[in-house]
Design a protein around this nucleic acid. Sequence first.
DNA 1: CGACTTTTGTCATGGAATTGTCATTTTTGT
DNA 2: ACAAAAATGACAATTCCATGACAAAAGTCG
Lengths: 231, 231
Amino acid sequence: MSKGKTILLVEDEEAIAYALKLNLEAEDYTVHLCETGGKAITFLQHHHADLLLLDVMLPEADGYQICMHFREKDKYTPVVFISAKNDHQSRMHGLRVGADDYINKPFNLDELMLKINRLLFKNDLRKDHDIVYFGDCWIDFTTLEAKGVNGTKVNMSKLEFDLAKLLITNKDKPLSRAFLYSKLWGYDKKHQPNSRTLDNFMVFIRRYFEKDISNPEYFVSVRGVGYKFVG
Amino acid sequence: MSKGKTILLVEDEEAIAYALKLNLEAEDYTVHLCETGGKAITFLQHHHADLLLLDVMLPEADGYQICMHFREKDKYTPVVFISAKNDHQSRMHGLRVGADDYINKPFNLDELMLKINRLLFKNDLRKDHDIVYFGDCWIDFTTLEAKGVNGTKVNMSKLEFDLAKLLITNKDKPLSRAFLYSKLWGYDKKHQPNSRTLDNFMVFIRRYFEKDISNPEYFVSVRGVGYKFVG
DNA sequence: CGACTTTTGTCATGGAATTGTCATTTTTGT
DNA sequence: ACAAAAATGACAATTCCATGACAAAAGTCG
C-alpha cells in the first residue's frame, strides 16, 4: 500500500499548490506544503518525506538546489519537478541533479497522479524495513539505526532498541516495570523493580528522542505502573 | 553501476530504432531490438531484460499489450513508452498499464538517456549483483576478484568471498554472529559464537576494503548482534 | 495545607561482556 | 611436502549496563 505517505510539495503559486494538495490528499497522501526553497530545506532536515514535488522557480532556493541538497543524503526517494520552464536545458538540469521526472506546466493532473503512485509503489518494494516515525525522529528496527531529535544519527545499543520496540509496538499502552524487566532481562531474581536499570535506559532513550527531557512527549512514565509510548 | 544491462527495444521505424540502439550501446547497454509486438512477447518469454523501451504502434501486438503481458509477471522492471501518439488518453493508458514513463516523439535523446539511467539505477537496488561497487573498491563475485582500497588487486579466499557476499546481499541489515556461523560453517557444535574466527575474517576483509580500519565505513560491527555492510 | 512516604529521574563508576588484533598452530589443497 | 587458508587461544581495547547514592517529583494522610 503506498497510501498514507508523506509528500513534500514546494510551490509558491498558491492556486496550483492548493489544487495539488487537495488532489493528493484525496488519494490519501499527507501533504506538507512549503512556499519557499529555504523552508523546504529546513523541513527536510527535520522531517521525513516519501516523495518530493518541486517547483523550479522558487524564492530563496530553487528546486534544483533543494534536490541536490536532498540527494546528498538520499539517492532513492522519488523527486519530481513541476515547472513552467519547459526548455531542454532546464529539463536536463533537473534530471541531472537526480530527479525521477520533470513535468511541464501546465500539467495533467491524472497523469501526474499515476506517475506519483507508480514511483511510490516502486519505492515501497525497495524497503521492507520496519521503520517508525514520530516527531522529527525515526527508528529503523531492521537496520538498527535511528535519527534523534537534534537531527543526527543516534547510536543505540541492542537493549535500547529492544526496549523502544516493546514500548512502540504497544503504543499507548502502559507496560509495567515487571513486564519490561521480564521481557528484556528474563525472570531473573536480580532485576527486581527496585533496580534503577530500566529508568536509566529510559533516560537514554529520552535523551535521543525527546525535545524536552523533563517533559517527555513520546516516552512517558506512568506512575505506579511503568512506561508507555505515545505515538 | 547500471551498465552492461540488457534493454529490450521494440520499434518498427528503422531509423529511430537504429539511432536508439546506437546511443544505448554507446552507454554500454546491451540492446535487443524487436520490430514487432509478437517478437517482443516471445523474446520476453525466454530472455531477461532490465528495461523495456516500447513504441506504442506496432505490428502484431501494440506496446500496451506487451506491457500488460509483461506486468503480469514483473511489476518492477522499468517500462518506458516512446510514442508519436501524443494525446492525453494514450499517455494515461500507457501509465495505467504500468509504465514508468511515457515519452513523446520526437524526443530528446539526452533526456531519455538520463531517465533510463535513473530507472536502472533505482532498479539495481533490488537485484543481486555479481559485481558490487563501494567507495573506490569493488568485488566481482563471478570471477572472484576484487579491488581493494589501495587500488591494487586483492586475493580473497573462498570463505572471505562468502562472508562478504552474505553481508553485501543483506546490505544495511545486521546479521547475527549465530546466523553467519550457521551459514558459513553450518551448525557445527564447534563454531559457537565464542570463537574468534568470524572476527578474524572481518579483520581481513577490513584490511582489504577499509580506509581506516579502526573506523570501518562499510563493514561495521553491530554490538550485541553481529556485523553489517553499509552501502 | 504541610510533613512523610513512595516512586521516578539523574549521575558517576567499576565490573562484565563483547569485539579487535596478533601470533601461532592446524588443516587443506596441490 | 609446501604454501595458502582457516582455526585457535591469548590478550588488549572498547562498550555496555547494573549498581548505589542521591535529588526531584508525585501521592498520601493527618
